[in-house]
Nucleic acid binder design. Structure first.
Length: 110
DNA sequence: ATTATGACCTATA
DNA sequence: CTATAGGCCATAA
């Protein structure tokens, strides 16, 4: 698998996440076929921001607990603010209501 | 080629 | 319930 393939898939999935919905690294990784490669998803997103800036809804990707683990890679609280604007509920300061807003990537290609 | 690191996840204790 | 340990795959040095 070439690097671009993996990244492209991540880009594709991320850009298909509907507003007001969130998904997890594990879900994306599993959807890509590498269940244990969840870390790579975050890595890819980090690279994505460095390369494409904030043109992709990377803020809609959280860990399986709904925590905004990547907030540090966004300027200020832009990640949390964007999610709030889209109507995502928060159970904690930096934790979204994952159970009510979860979006499974496989639902897209259904 | 080898080692270290990471926006994670799951299994055990 | 919380805490610790290991695995996992792609990248960077």
């Amino acid at each position: 698998m070439k690097r671009e393939d993996f990244y492209h898939k991540v880009y594709d999935v991320v850009s298909e996440i509907p507003p007001g919905r969130v998904t997890t690294y594990g879900a994306i990784a599993g959807y890509l076929g590498v269940r244990s490669g969840a870390r790579m998803v975050g890595y890819a997103l980090n690279n994505l921001i460095s390369k494409e800036g904030e043109n992709y809804p990377a803020h809609r990707v959280v860990n399986r607990l709904g925590q905004l683990t990547g907030r540090a890679y966004f300027p200020g609280d832009s990640m949390r603010e964007r999610l709030e604007q889209e109507g995502v509920e928060f159970t904690e300061e930096y934790t979204v209501d994952i159970e009510n807003h979860f979006w499974d990537p496989s639902l897209n290609l259904k």
